[in-house]
């Protein structure tokens, strides 16, 4: 079956078209259009307006890129949550309209679980990983245990991407700040102590952020502050991930989310995995960031396992918990 997925939880609107080839996700098209704020962070309404403007052309471009017609699409999948309300509503409206006009079934998926499943579906050898999901808004360590996708650790305040963006904004960098901070950190030489804030299995970044901003005000080298911020936050993320792996006895770790493009974070998690004798997986960048293909893939898995959704079930959920997903497609 050919599945079309619409992703619209935050600043990106994405359309992906996939098929399931013997348990492997074959991507026929995966287009993304990302809202770039002129200054500051993502304004939900403005991002939603952006998505509304670009979704229709994106849909046409996707079917063309996939070499299919709209009539060939068997299933419409959309990101049901978690995310920004106005953005979610724009994506679901497009999905509903498409499903109704094509008279094809509609299925809503959990965005965080999609990041995990696309790893299993596209990365060779990835079967049962602990996912370190790190994006602007989300920072969760997720794994399949006792029949559900469980969150073993997460941020108590902001997502790591959001933390980096806030810091970047404070030092005058443009959105997205992550890659620029990564570049600056490369020439950092001195480690400036930052609070290493882990509570149980959860992480808190606000204190770190405050201290980092303080260092900047005190005149410390930006490169050193960036280096220290990365080293501390990434060490925290790696530690929580390792503890989840030890607790669940899983031998695979998968990265997901926009912040997974950070080479330093990848290197750290890979080193940790190697030292445990575990496998390290990171999907290709186009499915690491928010994208429609992962939404299509998860929708396909859910539908093929028997799950069905009526129009009434398609209400979006800004606070869609990872552990609220009924996992019918895994043993």
């Amino acid at each position: 079956m050919i599945c079309l997925g619409i992703e619209g939880t935050a600043h990106s609107i994405g359309v992906g078209i996939i098929t399931n080839v013997k348990g492997h996700c074959q991507i026929l098209a995966n287009l993304i259009k990302t809202y770039q704020p002129e200054k500051g962070g993502i304004h939900p309404r403005e991002a939603a307006n952006h998505h509304a403007t670009f979704i229709a052309p994106l849909l046409s471009q996707s079917v063309q890129a996939a070499g299919v017609d709209f009539a060939d699409v068997d299933l419409i999948s959309f990101s049901q949550g978690p995310g920004l309300g106005p953005c979610l509503r724009t994506a679901v409206t497009a999905a509903r309209a498409l499903a109704l006009s094509l008279e094809k079934p509609l299925i809503g998926v959990n965005h965080c679980v999609a990041h995990l499943e696309i790893g299993r579906g596209t990365v060779h050898g990835c079967h049962d990983p602990v996912l370190l999901y790190v994006s602007g808004a989300n920072t969760q360590v997720i794994g399949f245990a006792e029949g559900k996708y469980r969150v073993f650790g997460e941020t108590l305040d902001v997502g790591i991407g959001n933390c980096l963006d806030k810091f970047g904004r404070a030092i005058g960098l443009d959105f997205p700040c992550g890659p620029k901070i990564e570049k600056l950190a490369e020439t950092g030489t001195q480690y400036l102590p930052l609070p290493y804030s882990i509570k149980g299995m959860d992480l808190a970044f606000s204190g770190l952020l405050t201290m980092a901003e303080h260092y900047v005000r005190e005149g410390e080298r930006i490169q050193d502050v960036c280096h220290s911020l990365q080293e501390t936050t990434f060490a925290m993320l790696t530690e929580v991930t390792e503890r989840a792996m030890a607790h669940t006895e899983k031998q695979e770790v998968l990265l997901g989310g926009g912040v997974a493009s950070n080479k330093r974070l990848r290197a750290m998690v890979q080193t940790m995995a190697q030292d445990r004798g575990a496998s390290f997986f990171v999907p290709s960048r186009d499915v690491c960031v928010d994208n429609g293909a992962m939404i299509a893939w998860l929708g396909c898995l859910m539908y093929e396992s028997g799950l069905r959704m009526s129009l009434e079930d398609s209400l979006i959920n800004q606070r869609f918990r990872t552990d609220m997903v009924e996992v019918t497609w895994r043993d």
Binding site: P193, Y196, E231, T232
Partner: peptide, 9 residues
């Protein structure tokens, strides 16, 4: 000791 983090940390 964890090789993934810098010595200071």
């Amino acid at each position: 000791n964890k090789a993934y983090r810098i010595k200071e940390i």
